[in-house]
Design a protein around this nucleic acid. Sequence first.
DNA 1: GCCTTGTTG
Length: 679
Amino acid sequence: MAELDIGTSFIPALFKPSALLPIARHRERLLYLIETFPITIVVGQTGSGKTTQIPQYLDQAGWCLEGKTIAVTQPRRVAATTVAARVAEEMRCKLGQEVGYSIRFEDVTSSATRIKFLTDGLLLREALVDPLLSRYSVIMVDEAHERSLSSDVLLGLLKKILRKRPDLRIVVSSATLDAQNFLRFFVGDSTEENGKENGNGENEPGGSIGRIINLEGRMYPVDIHYLEEPAEDYVEKAVETVFEIHTNEPEGDILIFLTGREEIETMIERIADRLDSINPSAPKLQPLPLYAGLSTDQQMYVFEPAAENTRKVIVSTNIAEASVTIDGIVYVLDCGFVKLRAYNPTTGIETLTAVPVSKASATQRAGRAGRTKPGKCYRLYTEQAYERLAESTVPEIQRSNLAPVILQLKALGIDNIARFNYITAPPSELVVRALELLYSLGALDDYAKLTKPLGTRMAELAVEPMMGKVLLSASTFDCLSEILSIAAMTSLQGAVWFSHEGEKKAQDIARRKFAAEEGDHLTLLNVYQAFVTKGKKEAKWCRDNYLNFKSMTRAVSIRNQLKRYIERFGINVEESLGKEAGILRAGGAGKAEKIRRCLTAGFFAHAARMQPDGTFRTVDGGTLLHAHPSSLMFNRKADWVIFHEIMETGNKTFIRDITKIEKAWLTEYAPEYYRITKR
DNA sequence: GCCTTGTTG
């Protein structure tokens, strides 16, 4: 940012006098609404200052007296930490004192903390031990319009808590489109009066429950352009548009939204191919990729200022829509598609496919061009196509595997899942499938009540239900120490290996050093054990072995956390770290078999059999599966296996983290499940 | 022959 240096360098660049923010004009109205109504919906564009200012107004107005705290939830960890730092700076206090944050593995709060930023998932966990969230006077749910699983569940829970805590105040921050929807959610079917007949003279849809307040943002106008004819190949169209902008439009960086890594790499190659066509004396173009799979270092390039006389072209996935904000973008290109996860309750298979974006999403993308000055957005589709788009993206709760959600709701004391206050209810097929799985794992009884201690413990463990079952069975299989490591490693979701371009072969060779005959789970165990013993938890060792140091460090934290839980349940953890590594690799019978049996006791629903041609079939024979290329079983022989994850991408269904088992173990550990599904 | 994005005292 170009600002005059007038010698006041002690004021950080971030700092803007808060009195100048547009929100300052709404201070009194905001405080009045929050004082008067249980619910306040705040509609605020980016740059309105709602996240940083509202908690401070509340603190100044006395909402933190008598030891009470204001909670502000965020959907992402980085947001919680950076916003907390910003507010601490504005209040001129040390982070962790009056202002703090709390995210998994990092609690930067103290007894002095009055304003606490935290992830919405973590606040949900707090409700397990403090069901009325009694330490908070105000809870602000930020970015609620993103409709993440945890913020949806949190809002439903808050509605329930309100009935028992009339003193509690809830602030929901949302985009325009959803404000009415959120208010209706809190008013509708409530035990309180609902506005039409509240008799207090206020004829507003929120009745005596709540109000909506609009805050202006600090956005510059963005010109929207559409194609006249649909594009046959939007990557090609995007490349052409980049060069048109570059030759005809004034300076300013370009951000392009595509759906995935492959498209991004294609686009970058095509731009590079045509760079020679630019007049050598003209300004240059610097294409840069941005997607979650890149290392942190590789991602940092997009934030660095371009070389002189050079225009940055950032080619990104949806990560730049809300999670990552880049300054200096003046032109946005939107391909009109996004890859979304969806869970098929009939097959139990997750899909990852490109689908048209929603209007809300397209608006958000366009807005990325207007952060620092007026911008332009080129939609690589026609205006008619835009009109046909859905208003908003289907919320996660309607397209996810709900087993973890239902387990959590049950643990929060919400027994009647069907009558829970959902902002939008999930399809009943999803609920039924989740209940069936939880029942087959023994987490629910015949009356769909949480079992004790198994069900309640599974809900407390921060892993998915199937892995929770494995962890809680491990001591009876005499392999708890190993399973703790395996659970931590699978939680990394494939981010174990570090891939640099052109080093694929070396990486494969490195991987073979850890390979276990029995499959991926034991290989992951070997990696973990080597990291903490031979690797001394050092970055250099990871580099030498093509492992992701950050992920490995995270695995150590996850394992420690899981171990603490297990010990709190009164289960003894006998560490065998390091001793067994050699034995496992040699295929040493005893321990390895115990681990495979234990995994089967939790993952019996994820079983498959290899066919002579190397592909797999599900147990009922119905679905064709492929070992993911990252799996050891991609080019090895096996018979029956269990797997951690199943996902359909493009036109193939992949399974990953695969381990060999015996067929007989399935009926041994899940007799009912295999009787039911075989018919 | 390969994963969009988040996240759990």
